Computed example of a mutant assay.
Amino acid sequence: MLKAFADYLVFNLLHLTPGSHSGEALNFFIYDTIKIFLLLTVIIFVVALIRSWFPPEKTKRILSHNREYVGNVMAALLGIVTPFCSCSAVPLFIGFVESGVPLGVTLSFLISSPMVNEVALIMLWGMFGWKIALVYIGTGLLVAIFAGIIIGRLKMEKYVQDYVWKMQVGNTEIAEQRWSERFVYARQYTAGLLKKIWPYVVVGIGIGAFIHGYVPQDFLARWAGRNNPFAVPVAVALGVPLYSNAAGVIPIVQALTAKGMAIGTVLAFMMAVTALSLPEAIILSNVLKKPLLATFFGVVATAIVAVGYLFNAIL
């Protein structure tokens, strides 16, 4: 129905020619904008209800009782249903460290939360099907778990900024919420998140529409296809300077895939954009000294490149 509406609007009312660059680009933009915002509104509301059981203090308390390996797995899983963005990195990091959460476990959470979330899952499911969505979620969790374990094994606690160890964040008691309060929270969270991310979504859809309508069919397949051995690290390197979230980057991913870019390269690009960014590095430099910050980015980037090559080989 949405596709029929987009076709009618673009090709009947606006009289653009099917198959033309402008017609295909505008059709892509209208169809994806409507579909994505419908998906986001419904699914974010449902997941916000689940998130109401996992406020930051409760998450911190759960992780503080788990140690290496089990803690890394728990941290990566909790990252899916707990809010995280670059602006909350500093207080979350301080709270976790102050509560006795091991450094590697904390970093598993900080990797998983922006990269593996409900927006990425639902949008990937809607655009590519459940298999690709689960592939992305599964590999994102593995990257978060193993990167956290590796960094934890390196014993780099001395490279956490000194003031972090002196902070006393405290442990506020969490009052049990009634269902009516959870629905209010979910409605407010959904409205607030959509208000924050809609520009990224629209820009991402616009870029995806341009790629869909104007980039030649074989251009990306030639330069970023399976036959280019450097396609994956180049995609990761291009993703790091970009600052977006899953909602903004997935329409671009859809267009890149449609133009022939290998799926492993696309997944690596998406992971780099969502899990590694220059603004995040600047903010995290307030709590991590340069050796640990460089190690964090290096380990995660290496893991993402490995994931890209793996899936290019098997898919």
Rank of each mutant, 00 (worst) to 15 (best):
T295S: 14
A25Y: 01
P199F: 11
L14A: 10
Q217M: 14
Y200K: 13
L16E: 06
S64W: 00
I151F: 01
E68T: 15
P83I: 09
R67K: 14
T257N: 12
L220N: 07
S52T: 08
D162R: 14
G140D: 01
L134A: 10
V300N: 06
F311H: 11
V299K: 09
F146S: 04
V203M: 09
G204N: 05
A272M: 10
N27G: 08
W125D: 06
G148M: 03
F269C: 09
D218V: 10
G19Y: 13
G138K: 05
V299G: 01
I250G: 06
I252F: 01
G308E: 01
G308A: 00
F269N: 08
T257F: 11
K35M: 14
V232K: 00
A235M: 13
P83C: 06
L38F: 10
E181Y: 05
L77G: 01
K289R: 13
F96N: 13
A224P: 04
L284V: 04
L14W: 06
I205Q: 11
Q217D: 14
V42S: 09
T265Y: 04
A209M: 02
G79K: 00
S180G: 13
V46Y: 11
A303G: 04
H65P: 07
L288K: 06
E98F: 11
E173I: 01
G100P: 00
E57C: 02
A89C: 07
T190V: 12
T139V: 07
G298F: 11
V287D: 05
I304L: 04
N27R: 10
F84D: 07
F128I: 11
V97L: 06
A258N: 05
V305L: 07
V307R: 14
I304R: 09
S64D: 01
V135Y: 10
F45T: 12
W125K: 00
M1Y: 10
G298V: 04
V119N: 02
S99C: 01
L154W: 12
A89P: 00
H15W: 13
I80G: 00
L310S: 09
Y159D: 15
F84N: 02
M167E: 15
V47Q: 03
T295N: 13
L49Q: 05
F93C: 05
N228R: 09
A6R: 05
R226N: 11
L39W: 12
V97M: 05
A175N: 03
A186N: 02
F210N: 09
D218N: 15
W125F: 15
E173C: 00
K60F: 04
T82S: 15
G225C: 12
N72G: 08
G129T: 07
L142I: 09
V240T: 11
I149Y: 03
P229S: 00
V116Y: 06
I111A: 12
A191V: 14
L194T: 09
H65A: 10
N171R: 04
E280D: 15
P229T: 06
W53P: 01
V46S: 06
L9R: 03
F45N: 12
G100E: 02
L278R: 06
A255S: 05
N117L: 10
Y163D: 06
A186Q: 13
I149F: 07
S180L: 09
N286C: 07
R153L: 14
A191C: 06
I174Q: 11
L13F: 03
A186W: 08
F128W: 01
S285P: 02
T172L: 15
L293W: 02
Y200H: 14
V160I: 14
V169M: 10
V169A: 10
I50D: 03
G239T: 10
T295V: 15
